[in-house]
Design a protein around this nucleic acid. Structure first.
Lengths: 361, 361
DNA sequence: CTGAAAGCGCTTACAG
DNA sequence: CTGAAAGCGCTTACAG
C-alpha cells in the first residue's frame, strides 16, 4: 500500500473542491449547508417521497455542486446489504463470459452498483459452502446465474434460504417468470433443422452437449422437432452425445463420418464441437460444404475465423446480461409488475458458408 | 489470519448455527465469549503482534467454532479503504480478459478480497473522471492494469494523486519494479524471428499492431532484433502496421502477398491478424505452410482451431494475473523487499504446423 | 499486552 | 414533511 501521506490541503470548502486530495464530503456536510438534518439528506438520496419539493431541490443542488456521492460501504453497512452484484458462472467459453459481463455492466452504468465475478465448479464438494460464504460475507445485493450453474437446484434452494435475490439465465424456464431470462434454444435449433432439411438433406446427424447442461437437451429437442416438421427423423445412430469441447467434437464426428450411409449434414450443440467436425472431416478428406454441411450453435468468434465460415445459431449474450441485471434491479421497485413477465430471447440462424445441398447420391 | 469460513460443526451455540437464517455472529459475540474486549478480537483478526499467545489461541478457537468472518463493509468503513481489487482493462481479446481474471482470482482465494471488473475506453473524454469516480467511490484497495490501459501515463498520474496502489502489466518496464509485471514481448518476438530464419526464410514480413499499444512496438522491435542476429533485415516494404484485428490482418496481408518478390513468411503481432493472413492467403490460392509460413502471437484458442494449426508465441496470462495480484497484496506486508524486484515473464514459442521451409525459389 | 471511548458515513425506528 | 437518537460492525487514537 502506498503510505505516503500528504498534509491535508485546503481546509476551506471552496478551493477544496478542486484539490484532488480534498476530504470527500459527507452527508453531514450536505446537511449543514442545506440547513436540514442528515436524515433529510438521506431521504433525498434514497428517493423518499416524504420530502418537500423545495427542500429536495435545494439539497440536490448542493449535492451536485459538491459532487457528493454517498459512500457505498457506509450505506451498505446501515442497509445490511451491499451494492455488489455477483455474477456466478461456469461457462467455459471466454467470449460468452466476457459478453455477459459487458451486458451486466451496461445495465449497471450510472447506478451505484459494482460487479463482482465468481467462476465456480459445481463438481467440487465445497461448492455450496463456497457460494454461501461468498454471498453472505459480501452481503450481495443479488446474483446473476448463467448456464450451467443456473440450472443447479441446490444453489437456488440455498439462495432462497439466505434470502438472496437472483436472476437465472437458461435455455428453458425453470423458475418463476420474474427470475428468468429464457433463451429458447429449442427455437434456434429448430431453425437449424429446417435450414438443413430445406437444402435437401435427409441423412442428418446431431452431436449434442453433455447431459449436465440443460441447453444440450433443449438444442437436441429443438433440432428433432424441426426435423419432424419436415417429415424427417433424427436416427439413433446419427445422434451422438459429446462434451461441448473441440476434442469431443472430433471424436464424435470421426465415428459419425465412418458410418454407412455417411450423414451429409451435422448439427452440433455448439461451435467448439463444430470446429471438431471440421478437423475430423479434413482428416477424412471430406470437403465442407461439398461433402458435408455443418451448423454450429453460439456464433462465437471462431465461427467467422473458420474456413469455410460456419453457419451457426446466434444468441445475443450481451443483451441477455443487460436484461438479467435490469430484472434484478427492478425486483425491488414499483416496476415489479412489468418485470414479473418472463424475459424471452429468441436465437437467430446466421447462414454462412458451411451449408449447401447434399452431394448427389 | 485465514478468514475462510468452514461450516464448522455446531458447538454449544445451540441449533442456531445450523439455521441458515441465524443472525451472523459479530466481533462482539466473540469478545463476550472469550472474555476480552472487542479491540483484542480486532487485534487477532488483524494479526497484531501485541496479543498474548494464549489469548490469541482462545480467540481463534472461538472464531473457528462460530465460523465467524468479519464483515468487510464494516471493516472497510473503519479502515477507510475497501477490500475490493479493481481490474481495469481495454484488451479486446476475450480469452485474455478471462484468463487474467482467473489469475487474479487465484491469488485472491482464501483472502477477504473480491474482484470488481472495469472495462474502459481511453478514447472517451470522461475516461479519467470515470476512473477516478470508480476508484474513489469504492475506495478500492488497489487496481491492476492490463495493456494497453496499463501504458496510460495520465491514469497512473491520477492513481498517485488519489493514493491508489496499483500494479501494471506491460510489455516493457514503465515504472518502478514494485509496480510492474513485465512480459518481455521482445524476447518472444525474437524467438519467432530466429525460428523463421533458421527454416531458411529470407523474405520475411511483419504485420504489427496499432502504435497506441506498446506491445506492438516491442514485438516489432524484438522481431527485427531476432532477424538481425541472423544477418537479416526487416525490409521497409515488408513492414506493415495494422490494428490487431482480423480485418486489418486481411488487408495488410493482401497487400504484402501481392508484392514482388512475395514474402515467404509473415510474423503477425497477434493471432487475430494471423487468422486474417490465413484468409488472405486462401483467397490468393496460397497454401500454408507450403507457400507461406505464418507465426502469430498470443497462442489464443483460435491458434489451435485454425487449419493448419498456428505457430504462435505464448504468454502465461493467468500466471501474470496471479503475480500481479500477489504483488498488490504484498506491497503492504514485510515481503516488500522481495516484491520490490521486478516480476519478469518470458514468452515461449509454440511451434505447430504453420511454419516450414520456404518454397524452392 | 489490553481496554473504554469515539468515530467511519450512512440508515432504521421512533417521535413529532 | 422533518429531526434526534441509536445503531450497523468494525478500527483508530489514546490511555494504562
Amino acid at each position: 500500500m502506498n503510505l505516503r501521506k500528504k498534509p491535508a490541503a485546503a481546509p476551506q470548502i471552496k478551493a477544496a473542491s478542486v484539490d484532488p486530495k480534498r476530504k470527500k464530503s459527507t452527508i453531514n456536510d450536505i446537511a449543514r449547508m442545506a440547513n436540514v438534518s442528515k436524515k433529510t439528506v438521506s431521504r433525498v438520496i434514497n428517493d423518499s417521497p416524504f420530502v418537500k419539493e423545495e427542500t429536495r431541490l435545494k439539497i440536490n443542488t448542493i449535492i451536485r455542486e459538491l459532487g457528493f456521492a454517498p459512500d457505498p460501504q457506509a450505506r451498505g453497512l446501515a442497509f445490511r446489504r451491499s451494492f455488489l452484484i455477483g455474477m456466478i458462472y461456469d461457462n467455459p467459453t471466454a467470449q460468452y463470459v466476457v459478453n455477459m459481463q459487458q451486458g451486466i455492466l451496461d445495465a449497471m452504468r450510472g447506478t451505484s452498483f459494482e460487479l463482482v465475478i465468481r467462476p465456480c465448479d459445481r463438481a467440487v464438494p465445497t461448492f455450496l459452502a463456497d457460494m454461501r460464504h461468498f454471498i453472505e460475507r459480501q452481503k450481495l445485493f443479488g446474483v446473476i446465474l448463467t448456464p450451467s450453474v443456473s440450472e443447479d437446484d441446490r444453489l437456488v434452494k440455498l439462495l432462497h434460504e439466505i434470502d438472496c435475490p437472483y436472476v437465472r439465465i437458461a435455455a428453458v424456464s425453470l423458475d418463476t417468470a420474474a427470475t428468468m431470462v429464457v433463451t429458447h434454444d429449442v427455437s434456434g435449433a429448430a431453425d437449424a433443422a429446417r435450414h438443413l432439411a430445406d437444402l435437401g438433406h435427409k441423412l442428418i446427424a446431431h452431436i449434442s452437449g453433455p447431459p449436465t447442461f440443460r441447453s444440450a437437451h433443449e438444442r437436441r429437442r429443438g433440432f428433432a422437432e424441426g426435423l419432424s416438421e419436415r417429415g424427417l427423423k433424427l436416427a439413433r445412430q446419427y445422434d451422438r452425445e459429446a462434451g461441448y469441447t473441440f476434442e469431443s467434437g472430433i471424436a464424435a464426428a470421426t465415428e459419425l463420418l465412418s458410418l454407412k450411409p455417411r450423414p451429409t449434414a451435422i448439427f452440433t450443440g455448439n461451435d467448439e464441437m463444430a470446429a471438431g467436425v471440421y478437423k475430423a472431416a479434413r482428416d477424412l478428406g471430406l470437403e465442407i460444404p461439398r461433402d458435408l454441411s455443418v451448423v454450429g450453435f453460439d456464433d462465437s468468434p471462431v465461427a467467422s475465423r473458420m474456413w469455410p465460415l460456419l453457419t451457426s445459431v446466434r444468441l445475443p449474450i450481451r443483451d441477455m446480461g443487460r436484461m438479467a441485471a435490469e430484472k434484478l434491479f427492478h425486483r425491488r421497485t414499483e416496476k415489479r409488475a412489468q418485470n414479473d413477465d418472463a424475459t424471452d430471447v429468441i436465437p437467430t440462424l446466421v447462414v454462412r458458408e458451411s451449408t449447401a445441398k447434399p452431394p448427389a447420391a
